[in-house]
Structure formats: structure tokens, C-alpha cells
């Protein structure tokens, strides 16, 4: 069973994008379930997604990449045991760290007879608000971009060419190895291409040693005087 995470800061357009990607994957013959997580104790997104006829489970009360990783793993296993999806799309909270979510997903293997595969980690970046994001929450946006296999520069239909260019330059500087795509979840632009990537490609499993080294470099050495 594949886990496809669609990361990105709050307001990046994750829910709209996820609905379009899920619809595309359903049309391509897949059995899709969706897990949404929000940092607050109540979730608006699951209700919204279900209003499109999609199967969604919400997990609230903390961030699934750490605080409630166990609940997330159990939810993945329960979905597998009851619904047998071949792909679970996960919308993590806007502050989740992608590698933490990979690790949490792999915990579910203890509760079900299936192996987890990861689809490419897709991080959405809101090109319309790039300047504000880099001023206020740069560190988080950097982390989400750095850990992505694919960075989807979203809302290009409503953003200016200058902002899109700045966003792309920033993304390439932070993560030169990521595949960079442009599109709009609202207009379904780029949705089919992302659905094909989720269907076809695999992202490596969580590697504790590798992640620890990256984290040490990024968060310990950088903060030392």
C-alpha cells in the first residue's frame, strides 16, 4: 500500500489540490482513502473532502509526524484492514515535517499484513504569498521544500510572473534535486501529472541515520554560534 503525502504550509492549497488528485486517481482505477490532520483539535478539511464523495479520516489533537504518530499509524492500519485502499493520500498539518510522517506511516506495518511504500513527497508552495512566507515562517517552508521529491509551485493562475520566478529560485536553492512543477489545484492544472507520479514513482523509506545527519547539520550546527 502506498502512502502519498501532500505537504505544504497552511493555506498552500493542499486540500483543494488533494481533492483533484484523488478524483484523478479514482478515475484511473485506484481505491483511494484520505487522511487529514490539523494542528488544531478540530478538523474542517475532512468534512469538506467528504462533501466530494471521497473517503476521508481525520486525525486531530496534534501533529501526526510526532505528537500523535501512534494514532496515525493505527488509522493507516485500520483503513487498510477495513477498506483496502491501494493508495492513502495524507494531508499532514501545515507544520508537519515530511520525514516524520514517513516514519509514522511505517509504524503501521506492526498492525497490518502489508508493507508501506512511499509515493514521492510532494510539497506545495503558495507562490502568491511567497514574500510573507519567507519573512514569517521561512524555516518551516525551507524544511518542507528540502525534504520534498517534488515541489509543486501552486496558484500560478493567480500569482505574478515575478513571484513565481522568485518562488522557483528559492526552491531550487533550497533543494536542487527536487523536481519542480508549476500548476493550480483550483484549475486542475498539473493534477494529472502529479497523479501519474504518485502512481508510478517511489520515494525511499525513512532512514534514521541519514535523517539524523541531515537534521544535525540543519538544526544543530546552524544554530551554534
Amino acid at each position: 500500500m502506498k502512502i502519498a503525502q501532500i505537504a505544504g504550509f497552511l493555506g498552500a492549497g493542499k486540500t483543494t489540490f488533494l481533492i483533484e488528485v484523488a478524483k484523478e486517481l479514482v478515475n484511473r482505477g485506484h481505491r483511494i482513502a484520505i487522511i487529514v490532520n490539523d494542528v488544531g483539535d478540530i478538523n474542517v478539511d475532512a468534512k469538506f473532502i467528504e462533501s466530494y464523495g471521497l473517503k476521508a479520516k481525520e486525525i486531530s489533537g496534534g501533529c501526526i509526524c510526532c505528537q500523535i504518530a501512534g494514532s496515525f499509524a493505527s488509522t493507516v492500519a485500520t483503513l487498510y484492514n477495513s477498506f483496502k485502499p491501494d493508495i492513502i493520500i495524507v494531508e499532514p498539518s501545515g507544520v508537519a515535517i515530511p520525514w516524520g510522517l514517513k516514519r509514522a506511516a511505517e509504524y503501521s506495518e506492526e498492525e497490518m499484513p502489508a508493507k508501506i511504500e512511499h509515493a514521492p513527497v510532494i510539497t506545495l508552495v503558495d507562490s502568491m504569498r511567497i514574500d510573507e512566507l519567507l519573512t514569517s515562517v521561512r524555516r518551516l517552508v525551507e524544511t518542507q521544500i528540502r525534504e520534498a521529491d517534488v515541489v509543486f509551485i501552486n496558484k500560478v493562475d493567480a500569482s505574478s510572473p515575478d513571484k513565481i520566478k522568485r518562488t522557483e529560485e528559492f526552491v531550487r536553492q533550497v533543494n536542487p534535486r527536487a523536481k519542480v512543477m508549476h500548476g493550480s489545484g483550483k484549475l486542475s492544472k498539473g493534477v494529472k501529472e502529479i497523479a501519474i507520479l504518485i502512481e508510478r514513482d517511489i520515494s525511499p523509506r525513512y532512514d534514521e541515520a541519514m535523517e539524523e545527519e541531515i537534521l544535525r547539520k540543519e538544526y544543530v550546527e546552524r544554530s551554534e554560534p
Binding site: L10, V39, G40, D41, I42, V44, C63, C65, C66, V95, I97, G100, V137, R139, L140, T143, E208, E211, E212, L215, R216, Y219, V220
Partner: peptide, 22 residues
């Protein structure tokens, strides 16, 4: 070590105020 780093990361980035009501 892993846990400490993880918490540090969240503290660094999660400077968000939240409220929800039903």
C-alpha cells in the same frame, strides 16, 4: 537524540496561534 531534534524543529517553526470552535 532524534526526539530532541524533532521537538526543537517544531519549536523553531511552530510559532502559530490557533483556535477552533464548533
Amino acid at each position: 537524540m532524534d526526539e530532541k531534534l524533532h521537538i526543537d524543529m517544531h519549536r523553531m517553526v511552530d510559532e502559530l496561534g490557533k483556535f477552533s470552535i464548533h
